[in-house]
Simulated assay, not measured.
Amino acid sequence: MRELMEKLYEEMFAPKITPYELVNNAKLDNYEYVNMYKKGDFLFVESSCRLSTGEKAKFFYKFDQNDHLLSLTSIINNNINIEYDRETEINKLKKQLSKMISAQPVAV
């Protein structure tokens, strides 16, 4: 249970990757660009690169005001895939913890 609680804490508070780390990707040979823009309270990063397979890929990152990654979506060969969603991951862990707690015998 402790490991699950640590994972939940990490999902809630760890940045995963920061916008500043993504800027460095623009220096890589296989990257075409890394663009950032702010919309409301969120920072969005769009990047385009060539994968090792030769396929062109675009990645869309959404960050909160604390530079925490909220979501990451990829588009490869016109296939859209949600690679990461912080809220979904937090909810999965909360459900797992809730099940574990419910299964615990109650001391009398």
Rank of each mutant, 00 (worst) to 15 (best):
Y84D: 01
D67W: 07
L51F: 06
E87L: 04
N78D: 13
F63G: 03
I75A: 02
L43K: 05
K56E: 12
Q65G: 04
V23C: 03
V108H: 02
V108C: 12
N91S: 11
V34P: 01
E3T: 15
M100N: 03
L28C: 10
R86C: 08
K99I: 02
E89G: 01
K92E: 15
L28N: 05
S52R: 01
S102F: 11
S74L: 06
I101F: 07
K94M: 06
S71Y: 09
N79G: 00
N35M: 10
V45C: 11
I76Y: 03
E87A: 08
E55H: 01
N24P: 04
K58T: 11
L97V: 01
K62M: 13
S52T: 11
L43I: 14
V34Y: 00
N81A: 07
E87G: 07
T53V: 13
N30R: 07
E3F: 05
N25T: 10
T73H: 04
F59Y: 08
R2I: 15
E83T: 08
D29V: 12
N77M: 14
M36R: 04
P15M: 15
K94G: 05
S52D: 08
A103W: 08
C49P: 02
I76P: 03
A26H: 04
F60V: 09
Q104L: 10
P15T: 13
I17A: 13
K7T: 14
V23H: 02
S74F: 05
Q104H: 06
L69D: 07
Q65S: 15
L43W: 01
G40Q: 08
N79L: 11
R86H: 04
E11C: 08
K56H: 02
K16S: 13
S102K: 07
K58M: 10
L43G: 01
P105Q: 06
A26W: 07
S98P: 03
Y31S: 00
D67S: 09
K94N: 06
K99H: 02
F63D: 03
K95S: 09
D64L: 15
L4A: 14
S52N: 06
F42K: 12
K99Q: 00
A103V: 13
S98H: 08
A103H: 00
V108P: 05
K94Y: 04
E10D: 15
N77Q: 14
S71F: 12
E32P: 00
H68Q: 14
I101N: 00
R2V: 15
I82A: 03
Y31K: 00
T18W: 01
K38T: 07
E21N: 08
S74C: 07
N78Q: 11
V106N: 03
I82C: 05
D29W: 15
S52C: 01
K62S: 06
S102Q: 10
F63R: 09
N78H: 06
M36F: 10
L22P: 14
E46S: 10
L69M: 13
